[in-house]
């Protein structure tokens, strides 16, 4: 093809069985204008070096698997195009602030614990029998949480958060956004179910409003808003007036 060009991709390599620390490896990758960084990595794996490790699944910004640092910024590699980075080089590294498992794959275990801690499911006041049919919501009730429900757990926001980098125990932007998403859902009991996580020293109070999380989110979620709205909720709870002033 005439519109094939070549770009250099520098990938961080780390093999936990043989390496004591990571190094960068260079690959010369031919690409066409329709190729994403993810497709560049797949070219490397298929044609140049089968040992390069990275996560991916859907190729269309839905699954949240392929997040990585591309030239020092957190991006989904499936929706970042090599043509936009030409002439390169393109430096790809695992997401910042996470332990590196192998090459571009990070250890997500800590995040999964945090996700469990915020109870990412609807907790209703009473069991609803199936015979009652679907729980209906008005468009306004859906609007209240819709933005936050778009989170795909890609963890770009954690790579954008220096507070998480400095304190790995911080529950962090995505999990706190999902905490807010369920608290705002009219089918959920709300605040009291997840108050212990929000109120914790590793909860909303670890945030210093850098705001970069909201800039890098590929799905338009605003974690900075979720976290800081819950600082007010947590402060009211602390003063014992949360219930008096209402709100979810």
């Amino acid at each position: 093809m005439t519109d094939t060009r070549t770009i250099r991709i520098e990938a961080l390599r780390f093999n936990p069985e043989t390496d004591s620390e990571p190094r960068l490896q260079r690959y010369e990758v031919p690409f066409t204008p329709d190729m994403s960084v993810l497709q560049g990595l797949q070219y490397i794996k298929d044609h140049l070096d089968g040992s390069l490790t990275f996560r991916w699944s859907c190729r269309m910004a839905v699954c949240g698997s392929c997040g990585m640092m591309i030239n020092g910024r957190p991006h989904l590699s499936c929706e970042t195009f090599l043509r936009d980075l030409y002439p390169g080089p393109v430096r790809v590294e695992p997401l910042d602030h996470f332990p590196v498992q192998r090459d571009l794959a990070i250890d997500q275990a800590g995040f999964l614990d945090k996700l469990a801690a915020i109870k990412p499911y609807i907790v209703s006041a009473k069991e609803r029998p199936l015979s009652e049919g679907p729980s209906r919501q008005t468009p306004a009730q859906l609007d209240a949480y819709y933005q936050y429900s778009q989170c795909i757990n890609c963890l770009l926001c954690y790579a954008a958060c220096p507070q998480f980098g400095l304190n790995p125990d911080f529950i962090g932007p995505a999990a706190l956004s999902l905490l807010h998403r369920y608290n705002l859902d009219s089918r959920d009991i709300g605040w009291s179910v997840r108050a212990d996580a929000a109120n914790a020293d590793v909860g909303v109070w670890e945030c210093t409003v850098v705001g970069y999380c909201s800039e890098v989110c590929p799905k338009g979620v605003d974690p900075m808003h979720a976290v800081n709205e819950n600082k007010v909720n947590s402060a009211l709870d602390y003063l014992g007036v949360k219930r008096l002033l209402g709100g979810r």
């Binding site: 780390f14 936990p16 069985e17 390496d19 620390e21 990571p22 910042d96 602030h97 332990p99 590196v100 498992q101 250890d107 220096p162 980098g165 400095l166």
Partner: peptide
Amino acid sequence: EVRTYRRPM
């Protein structure tokens, strides 16, 4: 236990 590498900030 999975051995990981934690990059310093």
